[in-house]
Nucleic acid binder design. Structure first.
Lengths: 206, 206
DNA sequence: GTCTATATTAAGATAGAC
DNA sequence: GTCTATCTTAATATAGAC
């Protein structure tokens, strides 16, 4: 069905994406990447100097996927707190359904190399601290209005992220313990788009 | 201040605990474990056959720490749903404050070697499926009584776990993005013992 | 551009002296 | 029990033929 075959260069990147995302940098093998791309190791080095070079390309992409869209919503002004929460939740869960290993990959690689966050974060051209303090302000305004119960903006933010992201990070544990097949797990996360928004809003609404 | 020096064997285990927990199996180096224990690699192999042997001992301990206490509360009968939630939250956050890397370690190692969960899970002598269905029943009973809003037990359970565990899994990301020092992060998680219970109960209570 | 063959490196594991 | 020295293995990276 494909009209154009992907170039070798691209096939290597795709393969690397899969392998690095599943295994992480340390456990990933260039042999496996080459195999997955249908070539041999030598050719991989012909296109990319070394393992680190490929990893950095992959990490940059995944890092953006993980953070970018979220920040867009986060930044958007003229939108109520509840509306913002709904959009964040929906965006986050939708992204993670599309890329189920994304969160675990980005988080564990950053945990092992914290400098990755600073390096790649700078490239995104956003200031998280500023965004968070804007969010804090919006939350505080709602509290003053008496529409929501008192809560620190950053704690609310952590709650939102936790409810969206954790199920994907812990998916192997959850799937096994709850005996969920791939498809059942997917349906469960699909439900959470609505469920998590409601859960949060029910909790803070007065 | 120490009355008795730890034996070499124990010092190796302690060192391995630190290194494996920080780095994960693949990125951990036996050299680093030996150094951390104040010995050399050869001696490490004198006490333990190989890297896998040590890892398995460590993983078993950490795995129990992560799951055991939780199940005890989970199992305990004659205790209201709200009370159960409060105890679970409190126990989980307290454990993770004591062992901040525990959750990320256990989850990522299971993600890479799913069989670890089955093997070690069996040793715990508990049946997660049974526990979860008991929990489901309790939740459904409360819904019927009209004391809480309708929610699937398993979704509620995932919410509880998410709110407790995620902040620790993602701590390097959260600390950097929110510019929290070690101490501030600790205080934030300490606050969450109360905050998370309230957040959940506010959300489900009618 | 792609491969086979080879070199290099680094990590894990063992032998043997003390 | 602990070390130094050495072996082995496996993974990354390069050279060179086609």
């Amino acid at each position: 069905m494909e009209l154009t075959e992907a170039s070798t260069e691209d096939r290597i990147l795709e393969a690397a994406m899969k392998v690095f995302t599943r295994k992480g940098f340390a456990a990933a093998r260039t042999e496996e990447i080459a195999k997955e791309a249908g070539i041999n190791r030598a050719l991989l080095h012909y296109y990319y100097r070394d393992k680190h070079t490929i990893f950095n390309l992959i990490f940059e992409t995944r890092f953006k996927e993980f953070f970018k869209g979220l920040f867009v919503i986060f930044e958007s002004d003229n939108i109520s707190l509840f509306e913002k929460i709904e959009r964040m939740v929906n965006h986050e869960i939708t992204t993670l359904i599309k890329h189920p290993h994304l969160a675990r990959f980005v988080i564990t690689e950053i945990a092992q190399q914290p400098e990755l966050l600073l390096e790649h974060g700078a490239k995104l051209g956003i200031n998280p601290r500023l965004l968070i303090s804007e969010f804090e302000k919006q939350v505080n305004a709602e509290i003053k209005l008496g529409t929501i119960r008192p809560i620190q903006g950053r704690q609310l933010l952590i709650n939102i992220m936790s409810l969206c992201i954790y199920p994907f990070v812990a998916s192997p544990v959850i799937q096994t313990m709850m005996s969920l097949q791939e498809k059942e797990f997917y349906e469960m996360t699909e439900q959470r788009k609505r469920l998590v928004s409601d859960f949060i809003i029910n909790s803070i609404k007065k």
